[in-house]
């Protein structure tokens, strides 16, 4: 609640932001990943399984 936490020594403004932090700071990239993962592994793979069920003799 207080500003005390912001009194840390300032970071070097030129320090490069690591790639993983950049990913975590990018909501739309995360949104993309969060939709693609289950769509591919759960939905598409699952629907392919159902379509390939053979017909009973």
């Amino acid at each position: 609640m207080s500003d005390a936490e912001h009194s840390n020594p300032p970071d070097d403004e030129n320090e490069r932001i690591p790639a993983m932090q950049q990913l975590l700071d990018n909501p739309f990239l995360l949104l993309f990943l969060g939709v693609v993962m289950p769509t591919v592994f759960y939905l598409i793979w699952g629907i392919m399984e159902i379509i390939s069920i053979p017909i009973a003799k």
Binding site: E5, H6, N8, P10, D11, E13, E15, I17, P18, M20, Q21, L24
Partner: peptide
């Protein structure tokens, strides 16, 4: 986060 680069 108080640090600009917290990942490290």
């Amino acid at each position: 986060p108080p640090e600009r680069v917290w990942w490290n």
